[in-house]
Design a protein around this nucleic acid. Structure first.
Lengths: 246, 246
DNA sequence: GCGTCATATTGACCTACATCAAAGACACAC
DNA sequence: GTGTGTCTTTGATGTAGGTCAATATGACGC
C-alpha cells in the first residue's frame, strides 16, 4: 500500500453491523455528536464504515457527489488542481471532520488518505432524507459547515497576505490547536503530511517550507526530531511570528 | 457621507412595518427564499430594514455577533486585517447574500458598504429560535453556507496558486457570473469597488491590478469605459487566461 | 551490513510581483 | 473657470520566494 494514486475502489467496506455508530470512538466534533440514541440508530442504519490505506483516493473533484464522509481515524488531505497540475490543498482532516461538500452535485475537491484511515460513509440522498426528519442533525451540520467557512476565511488571509514565515508559523499553531493541546511547553505535534503537501496548503514550494522550518529551528523556536513531527519549543515567539508582530 | 470609516451607529433603521419581507424584491438567492407565507411572516417579525451609506462600517471583526444580515440592495465588502494593517478581502456581497458568520459569538470579519445599500437585519438569538421551528429556513441557510464554502475553496486555489493575470481574469469572470449574464458578447460589468479593494481580494497590490487590466485592454480582451465598470470583449480568451490555458 | 527509492535539505540563480515615486484623471466645491 | 482630494495609471528599482540542481537523510528490503 505504498504507491500514490489508487482509486476509491481500493477501499475496504464493512457493513454497519460490524462497526455501528454506537461504538464510534470519535470525540466531540463529529457529525453524529449531540444526537439522541434513537437518532444515532437512524444514522447508523444508513452509514458504512470504510478502511482506506495511505495514498488511497477517497473522492475525486468533479465526480458525482454520491456520498458524504466523516473521518473516524487517521487523516485525509483535500485539494483542488489547475489544468496544468498546480495544486492547492484546501484542508487537512482529522477524526471528527467531515468531507463531501458539493457544488451542482459534483464534489468540489479531491480527497486522499494521508495515512491508513477509517471513514464513516453516508449516501447523500439518504442523509438528506434524514436531515428532514432530524433537525438536530441538520443543526449540527450547519454548525460544522459554518466553522469550516470561518477557517477557510482565515486561510484566505494567510494565502493572500502573509509571508512565508508567517504562513509556516500559523500552520504549526493550527496543528497544535487541533491536537487539543495539553498546553505543556515543549509540545510535540505530528505531521502526517509531507513538505510538499504543506507547501501546497500554504501557497509555497517544498523548498521554501523546508528553508523556513530550518530557520525556525536555528532560532530555537522549534525542533525537528528525526522520528518525524515537530516540537514547539517557544510557542510565544511562534504566535508572534504568525501574526507578523516583530 | 464621503469619509472612510463611520461606525455602525450611522446606519438608519426602519421598523419592519415600513419595509416588510413580503415586499422584498430580492431575486432568488436570499435567506428568505423558499419560505411559505406563514414562515415569511414569522421572519418578517424579527427583521429590521437598514439603509447604509457608502463607506459605512456594518460589522467589525471580533465584535460580539449580535446580528445576521441579508443584503437587499447595493453591495458590501468583507475583510480581515492583520495587526500591521495588511488586509484580505474575503468577499464582495450583492443583493441576496448574507453576512454575519461568527466564531465563538464574535464576528469573523468586518463589513463595509461599497455604495449606498440596504440590508435586512436579524437578531442572532431570535433567528436561532426560529431555526428550531422552521426547518425549511435552516435547510436554506445550510445550502447558502455550503455554497459560500465552495466559493471560499475556489478562492484558496486562486490566492495560493494563480498568477496575477489568472487572478484578475478569474475575478472578472466571477463578476460576470454573479451578474446573471444575458450572455451577449460585449458584456458590461459594474465595479463598485476600487482597484485597491480588488487587490486586497486577489492578494495583489493596486498597481499590479491596474497594470494587469491595462494589459488585458491592450490585448483587446476587455475595454475600460470612462464611466467606470469593465466591458468584456473576448470572454473566451478570458476563460482560458483564468485557468492558465495558454 | 548494502542498495534502492522517496523525501528533505541546501545552494546558486532568476523572475513575478512589490515598493517607491511621480504624473494623470476625475469629481466636487466654490 | 480654479483648487483640492482621491483614485488610477505608469515608470524605475528592489526583493521574497520560485526554479533548477546537487546532495543528504531515512525507511525498507535483502
Amino acid at each position: 500500500m505504498r504507491s500514490h494514486s489508487h482509486t476509491a475502489n481500493a477501499v475496504t467496506a464493512q457493513s454497519e453491523a460490524y462497526s455501528p455508530c454506537e461504538n464510534c470512538n470519535v470525540a466531540g466534533m463529529s457529525l453524529c455528536h449531540a444526537l439522541s440514541c434513537e437518532e444515532l440508530r437512524e444514522l447508523s442504519a444508513i452509514s458504512t464504515s470504510l478502511e482506506v490505506g495511505r495514498g488511497v483516493t477517497i473522492i475525486n473533484e468533479t465526480d458525482p457527489a454520491e456520498y458524504l464522509f466523516n473521518v473516524t481515524a487517521g487523516s485525509v488531505k483535500l485539494f483542488k488542481l489547475l489544468p496544468d497540475g498546480r495544486r492547492q490543498m484546501t484542508g487537512f482532516l482529522f477524526p471528527g471532520d467531515f468531507l463531501g461538500i458539493a457544488m451542482n452535485d459534483l464534489y468540489a475537491y479531491s480527497a486522499e488518505a494521508l495515512e491508513d484511515s477509517r471513514l464513516c460513509r453516508f449516501p447523500r440522498e439518504k442523509l438528506e432524507g434524514l436531515l428532514n426528519r432530524l433537525p438536530q442533525l441538520e443543526h449540527r451540520l450547519l454548525n460544522m459547515v459554518s466553522h469550516e467557512l470561518v477557517l477557510a476565511q482565515d486561510q484566505m488571509l494567510l494565502l493572500g497576505r502573509k509571508t512565508a514565515v508567517e504562513k509556516v508559523s500559523s500552520f504549526l499553531i493550527s496543528l497544535v490547536k487541533r491536537a487539543g493541546k495539553p498546553s505543556t511547553e515543549r509540545q510535540l505535534v505530528a505531521l502526517p503530511m509531507g513538505r510538499s503537501d504543506i507547501g501546497d496548503y500554504l501557497g509555497l514550494t517544498t523548498e521554501t517550507v523546508s528553508r523556513t522550518l530550518t530557520n525556525l529551528k536555528k532560532q530555537k523556536i522549534i525542533a525537528i526530531p528525526s522520528g518525524g513531527g515537530i516540537e514547539i519549543l517557544d510557542q510565544e515567539s511562534l504566535d508572534e511570528l504568525a501574526e507578523g508582530l516583530d
